[in-house]
């Protein structure tokens, strides 16, 4: 019956919510629908405005938009492709660095920690520049010249902060497993590597999924940064379209279209992250 002196919830260590807090206002689907509807209304209104204010000789705003929409969508798909590849690369590297962060060998642990902190705290755009300018444009391996195009460098540039964040997620996940698991595994004669891969990581995996998904959504939105370093993505094409048409009244609907694409992709991920988080919290 013994209750510790700090059983008030507020006195317990606070765990920062990784994603959106429970809304408690209305059903999530309704909210998403509502936001989407607001979006659509805004979009429609801006389009109508563009229609009305268009120069008399020009094509209708809707026609112009329809002409460009497939191209912008292709650019957006390229953003998604980049996000997949960066996430894959960042996750592989990040998991290894994260495990190194809990290594028993002090130099390994400290180096992994230092790298993680450094790349986590550096701005994504600066890291992207770093990769773009400082990676060679071709590699020479055993006399074989491998070209290193800009988009691959961009993937590496984006994977750097992803890896650092994954590393923190992995470390946090491993740390969340009670030490009793390590002890009981040790007492069953598992070695450290076996314990990590067969006992700790499978348990920690579940807890790493929501923050990992959250990170993916952040990365997807960050892929637009590649337009800044001169790679053609959805944002570049949107801008190009606006320059080509040179119709200022189309600016708002065109940008809203692009924002809408990202929202339609990222919002469901955010919802899924939240519901997974809740489910795992209940089980934990």
């Amino acid at each position: 019956m013994r209750v510790s002196a700090t059983d008030l919830p507020v006195l317990l260590p606070y765990r920062a919510p990784a994603a959106i807090a429970p809304s408690g206002l209305a059903a999530p689907m309704l909210l998403g629908g509502g936001t989407l509807a607001c979006f659509a209304i805004l979009f429609g209104a801006s389009l109508a405005l563009a229609q009305v204010t268009a120069r008399p000789a020009g094509e209708s705003a809707a026609t112009v938009l329809l002409r460009w929409a497939p191209l912008i969508f292709q650019g957006f798909l390229f953003n998604i492709l980049i996000s997949f590849l960066s996430m894959a690369l960042g996750t592989v590297v990040g998991v290894l660095v994260g495990i190194a962060q809990v290594s028993v060998v002090a130099p390994v642990r400290r180096t992994a920690w230092g790298l993680t902190q450094f790349f986590r705290n550096a701005p994504w755009l600066v890291l992207l520049f770093y990769a773009m300018f400082l990676l060679p444009f071709e590699f020479n391996v055993l006399g074989l010249t491998i070209a290193f195009p800009a988009w691959i460098k961009a993937i590496i540039g984006l994977a750097l902060p992803v890896a650092a964040n994954v590393s923190e997620i992995v470390r946090g996940g491993i740390r969340s497993i009670p030490s009793g698991q390590w002890e009981s595994a040790e007492s069953l004669a598992f070695n450290r590597r076996q314990t990590m891969w067969m006992i700790i990581l499978p348990q920690a995996f579940k807890r790493m999924i929501p923050p990992w998904m959250n990170l993916y959504a952040i990365l997807t939105m960050a892929t637009t940064l590649i337009s800044v370093v001169g790679i053609q993505d959805g944002l570049t094409i949107t801008r190009a379209a606006l320059v080509a048409e040179s119709r200022p009244e189309l600016m708002i609907p065109m940008y809203l279209l692009l924002l809408l694409m990202f929202f339609a992709y990222c919002y469901p991920i955010a919802r899924a992250t939240l519901s997974l988080e809740r489910r795992f919290n209940v089980k934990a």
Partner: peptide, 14 residues
């Protein structure tokens, strides 16, 4: 809600 969801789920650069 709309404000929060809009700004959280679209790229800051856009």
């Amino acid at each position: 809600r709309g404000y929060v969801q809009f700004f959280r789920n679209t790229p800051p650069l856009v």
